[in-house]
Design a protein around this nucleic acid. Structure first.
Lengths: 110, 110
DNA sequence: AAACTATATCGTAATATTGCAATCATAAAA
DNA sequence: TTTTATGATTGCAATATTACGATATAGTTT
């Protein structure tokens, strides 16, 4: 008890849930928004952008990385993070499917 | 410490994060998928569909409801849940914006 | 090499989530 | 009215997340 029963669900369900979960924190949304806004993926200053301490930001970056939403590349002293289009595409694809299904049934209820 | 610093972020960031968070569990993805698949939004059998106990499913439904992703309507003895298109639209809109921004910068890095 | 910079990791406290058995609330059926 | 069915709520244990100070690691600069 307490732990998510991952094994009980399909790969697809777990995969989408993992991506969504990674986006399920305002700090991580803020990080993604920042990476989208900044022209090059200059990083590190993410810490300056966010109202959180450096270790906390580092931890959020790690979670985004684990979920495949961002990639990091060592660049001399610092590290360059940027968005991984594939994960975004997977989520977009899922949402798009949902929307199509929703349109096909319109106002069946509620 | 331990609690998310919601107040430090914008409404938009919190709003999207809330929706994403609600989708951040395979059981809740499974519920959404089921609601999309079933023609009418006959419910209750959600419990039968999922490998989880009734109180657990009820809790997941509550979270989806809190996040505005589903609506529930009392129907005699049972309750009829269905998807709330607006929340889905909000998420889709956000992802679409992301995609546009991503296309505008292509391979700047990483 | 020593100092500095940037970022990750460790340890830990506070809080949140997940899951379920037991129980409650309400409506339908008998 | 008693029973039955459906779904929510309560209480609790196990685990996960969030946040950060302190520290470690690795590259850069002096």
């Amino acid at each position: 008890m307490g732990a998510t029963k991952t094994a009980y669900f399909t790969n697809d369900q777990n995969s989408i849930a993992m991506i969504a979960k990674a986006l399920g924190h305002p700090a991580r949304i803020a990080i993604i928004n920042y990476l989208l806004k900044v022209d090059a993926c200059i990083c590190g200053d993410i810490v300056n952008e966010l109202p959180l301490a450096q270790p906390t930001v580092s931890q959020h970056l790690k979670e985004l990385k684990n979920a495949g939403l961002i990639k990091g590349e060592i660049e001399g002293n610092s590290i360059c993070y940027c968005i991984n289009n594939e994960a975004i595409a997977e989520l977009q694809n899922y949402i798009a499917k949902m929307t199509i299904q929703l349109e096909n049934k319109k106002n069946n209820c509620c």
